[in-house]
């Protein structure tokens, strides 16, 4: 849209903001991301319908919603990978929808993303996958990149003997953690997570949740997370957004989502409500547990295939 068009629209009262005004307001209110009227269809199927959202700087926002409700398309639109049909997306100083490639590239340097299926490079080792963004963006020396990647992998429980394995030789949970590491290794101010713990068993889920909590506390980054796991959302988020048929039908703090009267939100959370008291009671009881961990011997490297031996 041309500048003059916008002025004309503003005069007619159809379009109250120019990008400059939007960005000014965002700065004043501490809004990191502003999305307005986001719409995207694939063929005849409208996935996102007029979606509005403000994300504040430093908050953790969990997006909940059923499969195929448009969560992933929304995240990809933020990262500038998916191109919405209409609407506005502002991230920091960038007008994502109208940004020229060069600006889009700069915008992307400010964020990182973890993809649902991991999107790991299958032909290089776990460690090389994690150090990839550091090497590509040449922000640090190669040695430093390797050190940082190794340190992050250890912090998620992947011992050095696993670092040089190809992703295909790691278990599903380990691959998730490698993907997670790659998303956090650059310590970006905005990190997008797409289903960080889908398909993992409850204890691995809890471990990933704790890891994300640590990231949240240490980095003070803005985190946006798609998930189908209610407990993850309750534990981690400052706000939860419920997305239904391409729109956000309810957004608020976890407490307000739990007690929401919205029929869809109620249906979504009903299943957990009955069992939540028992879960919380067990969590409280075990919080002070100080016994020894049982090593089940399945983390031995000999059970996980051979290493690649580096480049």
């Amino acid at each position: 849209m041309g500048f003059l068009d916008q002025i004309a629209k503003q005069f007619r009262g159809e379009y109250a903001y120019t990008p400059e005004l939007v960005l000014k307001e965002m700065r004043e209110k501490g809004i990191k991301i502003r999305v307005r009227g986001l719409t995207k269809s694939f063929g005849g199927l409208t996935v996102l319908k007029d979606l509005d959202l403000d994300v504040y700087d430093g908050e953790t926002l969990c997006m909940l919603g059923e499969s195929a409700s448009g969560k992933t398309v929304f995240l990809k639109s933020l990262a500038g990978i998916e191109h919405p049909d209409s609407g506005e997306i502002y991230i920091d100083e960038h007008d994502v929808m109208n940004a020229p490639p060069r600006q889009l590239y700069e915008m992307r340097l400010g964020l990182s993303m973890q993809f649902q299926q991991g999107a790991l490079f299958e032909s290089v080792s776990a460690l090389e996958n994690v150090q990839w963004p550091l090497v590509m963006h040449a922000t640090v020396s190669p040695q430093e990149a390797e050190d940082r990647a190794a340190k992050d992998l250890v912090s998620v429980g992947l011992t050095p003997d696993m670092h040089w394995k190809l992703p295909s030789l790691l278990s599903g949970g380990m691959q998730k953690r490698v993907a997670l590491c790659r998303a956090i290794v650059e310590r970006k101010a905005l990190i997008l997570f797409d289903e960080p713990n889908a398909g993992l068993d409850p204890i691995k889920c809890a471990a990933i949740d704790n890891l994300l909590l640590r990231i949240k506390k240490q980095f003070k980054a803005t985190l946006i997370m798609n998930t189908s796991e209610l407990f993850t959302a309750y534990n981690l988020s400052d706000r939860i957004g419920i997305i239904y048929r391409g729109k956000i039908v309810e957004i608020g703090e976890p407490g307000s989502i739990k007690s929401s009267k919205h029929p869809y939100v109620d249906e979504f959370t009903r299943k957990s409500k009955e069992f939540l008291p028992q879960i919380l009671a067990y969590q409280e009881e075990l919080a002070s547990w100080e016994g020894e961990k049982v090593d089940d011997g399945r983390r031995d490297s000999e059970h996980l295939g051979k290493t690649t031996g580096g480049f």
């Binding site: 992947l158 949970g173 889920c205």
Partner: peptide, 14 residues
């Protein structure tokens, strides 16, 4: 620990 979906307990999460 399993039913309470927590990392605190005898089972190792990651």
């Amino acid at each position: 620990q399993f039913f309470g979906r927590t990392e605190d307990g005898p089972m190792i999460g990651v």
